[in-house]
Amino acid sequence: MTLDSTLTQLAYLLIFPGFLFLALYGMYLQWLDRKLCAIMQNRVGPPWFQALADFIKLLAKEVIVPDAAESRLFRLLPFFAMAAVMTALVSIPVGRSALFGFQGDMVVVIYLLTIPTVTFFLAGWSSTSPYSTVGAMRVLTQLFAYEVPMMLSLIGPAILAGSWKITGISIFFAANPILIPTQLLGFATALVALQGKLERIPFDIPHAKNEIVGGQFTEYSGRLLAFFYLAIDMELVVGAALLSAVFLGGSLGLTRWAAIPVFLAKTLAITFLLALLKVLMARIRIEQMINFCWKYLAPLAMAQVLLDVFLKYRLG
C-alpha cells in the first residue's frame, strides 16, 4: 500500500464518510429532530447551533466518577459506544457504495449496533447508584424486545435480494425499484424497532426522566456524557442510513457526488418519521413494550419475511 492510498483511506475514515461527517451530521439530525418536535408541538425550538453548543459546553464541564464505580470501565465506555457506531458505518453505503463491504456485513452491522446498547447497560451497572441500576436493567430488557423484530425485518430484503451485503441489497433494489413498495411493512417495523434502539419516546423507558432521573446516565457528567450523547446522535445517522440502504434502495444507482443528495434526503425523511413517532405517543411501560414487540412487531416482521420468501420463489 502506498502512502497516497493510505492517506485517502485515512481521509475516508476520519473525514468523509467517517468520524467528522458522522459527528456533524449526527448533531445536525439531533437538532432537526428537536426542531421538528418543537414545531409540531407549537414551540419555537432550539437555534441551529444548539447541538454543537451543548456538546462543547459538556466538554468543558467537570467529570465526576463515583467512588463506588469501576473507574477505568466507567471512563472507557463512552468511547466504546462511539467506536462501535463508527465501525458500523464502514459497511453502510453513504453515497454510492460502502467503504468496506463484504458478504455478510449486514450481520456484522447488526451486531456492531448492539454494542452501544451493551455499553449503556454496563454504564448503568458500573455506576452502582439505584437509578442507574434500574436504568441498566431496563436497557437490557428492552434490548431483548426490539432486537428480534429489527433483525427479522432486515432479513426480509436480504432474502429477496439474495445478498447479505448491504451494498448488494441496495444495488438490487435500485435495479428493481418496483419491489420497494413490497417492503413497506418491514420498513415500518424496522422504523419502530429503531426508535426502540435509539431509546426515544415512546421507548425512552431506560432513561425516563420522571421515573429514574437520568437512567443509565445518571452518574455520568462532563466529557464522558458528551461522548455518550454523540454516540447516540451517530447511531441515529447510522440507523437511518442502514434503513435507507436496505429498504429504500440506497442511492438509487446514482454514482459519486450525485448520490450524496439522495442519501441526505432519505436520512432526513427517516429522521422526520422518527420525530413524528416521538410526538405522537406517550411513553409506555417496560412490560407493555415487551408485549408490544413480541405480540405485534415480531409477527409483522415475520410476515414480511414470509412475503419476501414467496416473492423470491415467484420471481425465481
Binding site: 418536535c37 408541538q41 407549537n42 419516546i201 425516563a208 420522571n210 410526538v279 405517543m281 406517550a282 411513553r283
Partner: peptide
C-alpha cells in the same frame, strides 16, 4: 399528567 407519562405533545398543547 401528560408530562409524567412522557406525552410531551399533550403537555405543550394544554399549557398553551
Amino acid at each position: 399528567a401528560g408530562y409524567e407519562m412522557g406525552f410531551e405533545t399533550l403537555f405543550m398543547y394544554t399549557w398553551r
